[in-house]
Design a protein around this nucleic acid. Structure first.
Lengths: 249, 249
DNA sequence: CGTTTGATTGACACGAGTCAACACCAGTGG
DNA sequence: CCACTGGTGTTGACTCGTGTCAATCAAACG
């Protein structure tokens, strides 16, 4: 299943860094050279890293949806972050020691493994790249904070609206949207585990959103018909994503 | 209100880094020298950093409780993190640009401001210190993830139990506990804003915890009578705090 | 085809929010 | 010294958002 990285694969990743922190052209070239490694195809619902493990390599999601999650003793699951194309998995595990949560795929994915030593060398050699990597980590943290607000303060329908807005912005950055629509491969159960809601209730709220005409969700494809309404409903303010010049519409 | 940093003030901070990532003795000395700056006394309920601002200095909490929080358009508030003595406020704002949330005191605090340039120089000069700082940031992120699980999956009583366990461990690291008790200056409203619960419900759950005999909370002082029970109730596993050799009891 | 996974629906239960009143205490100022 | 105040904690009655359970349906799949 191994194959050499094609140029196209890294595009979302570079695009994201460019959007967020203005990585220079030569920095990108350097990244491309270093990251020209083997890509793995990983099936859906596979763990990339398990709690307690030490990561020997940084993982980069090039295609598909992955996530961070924890399972409670009684079986409840909380998804704590989505890893979309262009997202970095774990810059830091070397510093922290062992993983305190799991990382797993939600759909079929293309994943790039980069050796830790190689990353450290790259970050030492090129300061802009180091900065860009940390930028990614910090945006992850900001997103996490917003999710906490989402679950802690908003009602079910607001949570869903907010999540759909966030996904639109994040996927747009890596060129995976067309207009105000995008492929949304998650099941209602997975949405529930993300938002702290039961599957049944996610279903009901989705229908409410559909009925009001702001979205359409069919065949794993989401179309947002009334983005302003959705953004208002979810009280969505994209500031926390730290993306440059991108209006919610 | 300015005064020179006394040795004692930095103790919690150093203690924490030592616990977490084994900072060497000479590294500590170097930190002490560099951080010998002016300490501020800040009253309760004051903002240290507001959303949209750029931080010109890193803030270190030496005494008191502070927090990260966001306010929604309709007034709802979510506290996203506690900053306890020894915690660093913001290593990163320089990389991200503007703050995407507020930082404010919950109680009277002693805060140390360290110039950004000075921090960067320190991190460049001493690699262990840089590592230690990033370690702090990453633990913050891990804590945030656990809070997400807490709010997303656990019932009110479980959330409170979990929070009290976390505070015990974190305060113990900086020497602010006696046995299984510690000063807990937060109001029920603040606990509610932290856990995504109404004030009234926090009150009821606290009484339930008191009635069952596992804790005692009086005069802003919390005493945990049955830590194992509390930890079980909150499904508390301190792994995410990445503190060395500390058993839950 | 059966089998399985995910979506949908309805009836019902319950945890948590809301509203409102009251108690308590520490300041504050007259 | 004592009213007055505002913040915090406490309580009860009631409402409502979500969860639970269970059945059914639809689509995907080997």
């Amino acid at each position: 299943m191994l194959q050499t990285t094609k140029m196209a694969d890294l595009k979302p990743f570079l695009q994201k860094l460019r959007h967020g922190c203005g990585l220079g052209g030569e920095d990108e070239a350097m990244l491309m050279r270093t990251l020209g490694q083997a890509v793995r195809r990983v099936a859906a619902h596979q763990d990339l890293l398990r709690i307690g493990e030490k990561a020997d390599s940084l993982k980069l999601v090039l295609e598909g949806f992955a996530c961070r999650y924890k399972i409670l003793p009684d079986g409840r699951r909380q998804i704590m972050a989505y890893l979309l194309p262009g997202d970095i998995c774990d810059l830091h595990v070397t510093i922290l020691g062992a993983m305190d949560h799991n990382i797993g795929t939600l759909t079929n994915c293309m994943v790039l493994d980069v050796d830790n030593a190689q990353i450290e060398q790259l970050m030492r050699a090129n300061h802009s790249i180091a900065r860009a990597f940390w930028w990614g980590t910090l945006v992850d943290e900001a997103t996490l904070r917003e999710w906490l607000v989402n679950i802690g303060q908003r009602t079910a329908i607001e949570r869903l609206a907010h999540l759909f807005c966030e996904l639109l912005v994040r996927l747009r950055v890596v060129g995976l949207t067309n207009g105000d629509g995008y492929d949304m491969p998650l099941t209602q159960q997975e949405l529930g585990d993300t938002l702290g809601l039961s599957t049944v209730h996610v279903n009901r709220v989705l229908q409410e959103l559909r009925a009001s005409g702001v979205i359409e969700l069919r065949n794993k494809h989401l179309t947002i018909h009334d983005l302003p309404a959705l953004a208002t409903l979810g009280q969505f303010n994209p500031l926390y994503l730290h993306v440059r010049n991108q209006a919610p519409s």
